[in-house]
Amino acid sequence: MRKTIKIAILSLLCTVAAMSVQAQGVNNVRINEILVNNENSSTDVFGVHAPWMELFNNGYERVTVSGCYVGVTYADGSEKRCVIPSDKNTTLGPLSFLVLYFDNPAEPNTSRTNFHTGLSLENATMVKLYQASGKDVIDSLVLPTNALADVSYGMAADQEGLVQLDYASMGSANEVLSLTPRHELFRQRDPKGGMMALVAMSVVFSALILIFLVLKILGKVMIARSNKGEEKVAVAVEPTAAAGNSKDAELAAAIATALCLYQSDSHDKESYVITFDPSFEHSPWSAKSSEMTEGSRIK
């Protein structure tokens, strides 16, 4: 009973931990780049020049954004929302991207897929990404007024707020971002290196502690198994010894030892004469008629 309660508590703790990790992961997602006015820039899979927004997972763990909401606030103050559906592609790996299209619902050619929100950016002032609860905002972006055609706006590592990017980089790092290497970004966040040391040592210890625990359990199992084996052997041997045949056993051991010593000492006697056993049997290997060249015969 106690064991069951322990397992239940452990499972509950694991679930809570997993949920908190997941929630933490979603908070790492950022609205990284947006193209509001798409006239001749990239098209979606249906060949439509739809406005798009790029999400970026800023963390080092996989997160799923399915269930989260994309909200668009319009100039009149109204807001429309769309839920990101469940799909294997809405799971973002570490430092990876996801592109969502803002279709104009009036556009006849546009089909709906998981990555088309069905929202329009016409007269929109702000875009938001909500958590699955629909209450907490993960990230938001105030759209540029009079956004230029085919020009994307995004976040740059060393600049504040939204900046106009040199070119649209849908699904990849913004041009300014790519100029700053990852290790430098890491250094900017952790200039002294203390955080890295702490995290890395924790991971090293965790890995080796895990192995230590598994080996300890494995060792105990192995010791228990070998003890069991020894007990079985002892039980099998006991009756003979108990029957008072210990003298016979000693005798047998002495004979066996003597035989072993005799055999290890004995060798074949060598005559020290090297002999050949000539074979006159006919064989294709020795047949002179089968030789390839005449000249090789010794006369």
Binding site: M196, A200, V204, F205, A207, L208, I209, K216, G219
Partner: peptide, 16 residues
């Protein structure tokens, strides 16, 4: 197996 932890501790040299 507890000797494994010494192998972890010595990695302080790397991060130092």
């Amino acid at each position: 197996p507890k000797l494994m932890l010494i192998g972890a501790a010595a990695q302080f040299g790397i991060f130092g």
